[in-house]
């Protein structure tokens, strides 16, 4: 009777253990799948963000180049001379505007 009781108590234990093991394996696999998916998604998102930042950087560089070229035009002699003459009514420095005083005359 005692032996039978022991048998009855022992037999369900392995069944429970196998089910849990399977459950654990499935959980691990599912978790791995989820983590993998999450990493892939995050990686793609980061790639996109980097790519977007690079694009932004290239756009800014391009704009900077355009601004440098524009600056060259803004400081060009032709433009400055035209503004000086037409808007500010200035004249070009000529040799006649320099008076030379002889040292001998004091």
């Amino acid at each position: 009777m005692a032996a039978n009781t022991i048998k009855m108590m022992k037999s369900p234990i392995p069944k429970k253990s196998t089910g849990s093991l399977w459950l654990l394996i499935i959980f691990i696999l599912f978790a791995e799948l989820m983590v993998y998916t999450w990493i892939r998604t995050e990686s793609t998102q980061v790639l996109l963000r980097i790519s977007k930042a690079e694009e932004h950087l290239l756009e800014k560089r391009s704009y900077h180049k355009t601004l440098l070229a524009e600056m060259e035009w803004l400081k060009s002699d032709a433009r400055i001379t035209r503004i000086a003459r037409n808007r500010l009514n200035l004249s070009t420095v000529t040799m006649e505007q320099t008076i030379y005083l002889s040292g001998e005359d004091g």
Partner: peptide, 10 residues
């Protein structure tokens, strides 16, 4: 010996 001075107008 000449000294150059900028005149006011020209």
């Amino acid at each position: 010996n000449m000294v150059a001075l900028a005149s006011e107008g020209g």
